[in-house]
Write a protein that binds this DNA or RNA. Structure first.
Lengths: 247, 247
DNA sequence: ATCCCACTACGTACGCTGTACGTAACTACG
DNA sequence: CGTAGTTACGTACAGCGTACGTAGTGGGAT
């Protein structure tokens, strides 16, 4: 009988194989790589067990010898691309520079794998490469003299910001996938609706803003400034003026 | 023949009905409300066209007279709960206080509708209530003397941060849904794996951090401080020290 | 008053999904 | 050298979104 008892487990703690039966034709990594390849090429929704099996040239159900559930596959995929981080020998000593570099690396990885920003919102946890990343971050933040908890918040905040930024850029493109019209048409229609609404006079501040900054700024520059601003806010342990409590 | 030509369109611009035939049994809002009710009760994955139809007591395909595609339904759902924002008569004049209140409202809405933080990462756009929200934000930010583009970044950043924070909290609970074990078991297993890894000595900084702050801090407090810190960083137009360019 | 046709309602069906289960072949261990 | 545990995988099932066809309703034009 295939499969294992349905007990709580983490995929990272699950042994890939036992030595008894016939030699497996693939490794777990083969399955994950195939999934990543498909997602890179045709989007995350194209990643089905049947498609992966076809890519590997095996039966669909054979995959369940390597991965217990589809959802675990997502976690494995995230971990797989998290291996793309390139860390220097040691932190530079300038934590702002190090964290800035990491933010740019994260963004680059998300651009290389456009499905990542969506999958991470669901299948994210303390995978091996996530731990490696986190450990490196904390190493970079040694020169920063703030409480330990705050360092965690900083890392979470940087990651969250990069994710939110990239997600915002990619959501529209992803939505157009699988629709009977192109992304350009989608964007045009949505833009037209927005302009129509703004022209209605019901949104004066928004209208003023759109009139003021007609030319959209360079996304790279905005990203760099956003991260810089964010890191600034962690340079001191305490937030500045009050206003912490809501109205 | 049911349905309309497959042309690019925005759901907000699509007229709900024309006057010719028999009176529709429901309104578009009825359908959306039913979907929200199901999602609140049993999670977003329980929202299927068949389930909504059963909730309303009509045939499955009848729903397509009100909503052209499932994906549009998601956008309608996000817009529907976005109506829960309660704005005062006018901005207080203290933009930090106003934005802080908005952040807390967003968080409260996301707690009331635990599916929202996930759906928003996919189905988010300039819906009517999103425009209303944005317009209000810009009104609150009138006292803030920075370029218009920066105000947009501030709003995006606050929203993104709230979303990332809540998503992080809810991802685990959501993952446990539909699994044969409980969320507590899931958390326990993941925690055990993490502790085992940390105890391996491969992650010294992480180990030190976990040892230092054994008691997890109050999430509400962390949230409030995070938002305060974030708003601080927008109080001046330019980021502080250099380090903008990556290494 | 009557006809027309746009419109609503909805049953059926198709292709797709994840995966439970059963069976056959294989191999390392007692 | 059995035999037990493993791999491979075909079949099957429940569920999904939705294309399509048909029946019936009722407002607008004649």
């Amino acid at each position: 009988m295939a499969g294992r008892a349905a007990e709580p487990e983490v995929i990272w703690a699950r042994p890939e194989r036992a030595g008894r039966g016939p030699k497996p034709a693939f490794s777990r990594q083969d399955v994950v790589d195939a999934a990543v390849r498909i997602a890179d090429a045709d989007g995350i929704d194209a990643v089905s067990m049947r498609r992966i099996a076809a890519e590997l040239g095996c039966g669909t159900m054979s995959l369940y010898n390597y991965v217990p559930r589809k959802e675990d596959l997502y976690e494995l995929m995230v971990d797989a691309v998290s291996a793309e981080y390139a860390f220097p020998e040691r932190p530079s000593g300038d934590w702002r520079a190090d964290m800035t570099d990491l933010a740019h690396q994260t963004r680059a990885i998300m651009y290389r794998h456009p499905w990542l920003s969506r999958v991470m919102t669901t299948a994210y946890g303390f995978s091996p490469n996530a731990l490696r990343y986190l450990e490196w971050c904390l190493g970079c933040l040694v020169p920063l003299d703030v409480p330990a908890g705050l360092k965690m918040q900083l890392v979470a905040m940087v990651n969250g910001t990069v994710m939110a930024t990239v997600r915002n850029e990619q959501a529209l493109a992803e939505r157009a996938r699988g629709l009977p019209w192109t992304e350009e048409e989608e964007q045009a229609v949505r833009g037209a609706y927005l302009m129509g609404q703004v022209a209605s006079g019901r949104y004066p501040h928004l209208a003023a803003l759109l009139a003021e900054s007609a030319a959209p700024a360079d996304p790279d520059e905005i990203f760099a400034l956003t991260i810089a601003r964010l890191l600034d806010s962690f340079a001191t342990a305490e937030p500045g003026r009050g206003s912490v409590t809501p109205a």
